[in-house]
Nucleic acid binder design. Structure first.
Lengths: 184, 184
DNA sequence: GTCTATACAGTGATAGAC
DNA sequence: GTCTATCACTGTATAGAC
């Protein structure tokens, strides 16, 4: 049910996701919605944010922190490309960050990105990159994915997303292998 | 007046920018608004998109096409950083692209980005880059700015925007000077 | 738990006085 | 041109039958 809501908020944004459209798309009546989410729409969106955050924590951040660095980074590229349907699906957190919805969920939004950057930077260090360089590169990657989503949606062209993400991956690999070589 | 509207749509998004909030912030009554925009909110947003597009066409795209390539690219970095208030201001076109507002203005949204990429790629070619490489780099830059806006808003940190844009600029400069050197 | 009916504020939009 | 009043409608939210 929460994944259903997530899809609706993703496509329509917080303001655009009216209760009428939610009931129409999910087939769940208003009564039922308010039974599960007494806090109304605000609570629904909070639950959706938590669900999205949970998915990334489980599938991306935790592996980046704990697993073999190179393997986890490879999995990150694969999982995020699949998650965002190669640019066909928008990032809910990024979309919320852009308008005044941000003020409502500022903590959750910032935490999502901070933890992504920190986890990736840690993995890059373990893969051989320098600390400062790793943080910068992690910021670049996370920001780059958001930009690729915006641009591929704007141009309605998934190829743009794939090209941009591929390039980011190549840049990271080049930088890591160069750092490893200079340490040898 | 249109710039006033632009600021409101930027901050609140299309759905969030209600007529009540527009009249409250601009001090212009509904009667006057409908006098200038008989098509209502949809026409207001269209006018705003056109105004934004006009600004970029005049201040960024035209110089990239016509002026000295290196100077125009330098001006682009300066003007976009100023325009977006170093990440404190969001890109209206990018924000519209993310939710279902996109379907309403798909043509204008795509055109804004296509012309930016084309103009920048042309300037990069004139500055010495190869054609394919220039297009790819232009996509990266435009996408990178959008990503930097999302991330700096999400983290509420203008420093992130500045770092990311500075890095993008350095990458472009390195690539151009390298291409120029290999041609010599 | 789910539905229907409904409350009431807010929506985009219009008409008409000034 | 601008304002006020008001329209029909939709927004979120609630109450109560089942």
């Amino acid at each position: 049910m929460v994944p259903l809501l997530a899809e609706i908020f993703r496509e329509l944004g917080y303001e655009g996701a009216t209760l009428t459209r939610i009931t129409a798309r999910t087939g769940i009546g208003k009564g039922s919605l308010y039974h599960f989410f007494p806090g109304g729409k605000e609570e629904m969106a909070a639950a959706v944010l938590e669900e999205v955050d949970g998915w990334f924590e489980r599938e991306v951040y935790a592996p980046l922190r704990e697993d073999d660095a190179t393997a986890a980074i490879t999995a990150m590229w694969r999982n995020t490309e699949a998650y965002f349907h190669s640019g066909g699906r928008v990032c809910l957190v990024g979309a919320f960050a852009l308008d005044e919805t941000r003020s409502r969920y500022a903590g959750a939004i910032a935490a999502y990105f901070v933890r992504w950057i920190d986890a990736l930077a840690g993995a890059l260090v373990r893969a051989g990159a320098g600390r400062v360089e790793a943080v910068m590169m992690a910021e670049e990657v996370v920001s780059g994915i958001q930009g690729a989503l915006v641009l591929s949606r704007a141009l309605d062209d998934k190829g743009v997303f794939k090209r941009l993400v591929d390039n980011a991956r190549r840049r990271v690999e080049a930088s890591v292998s160069q750092a490893a070589a200079s340490r040898a």
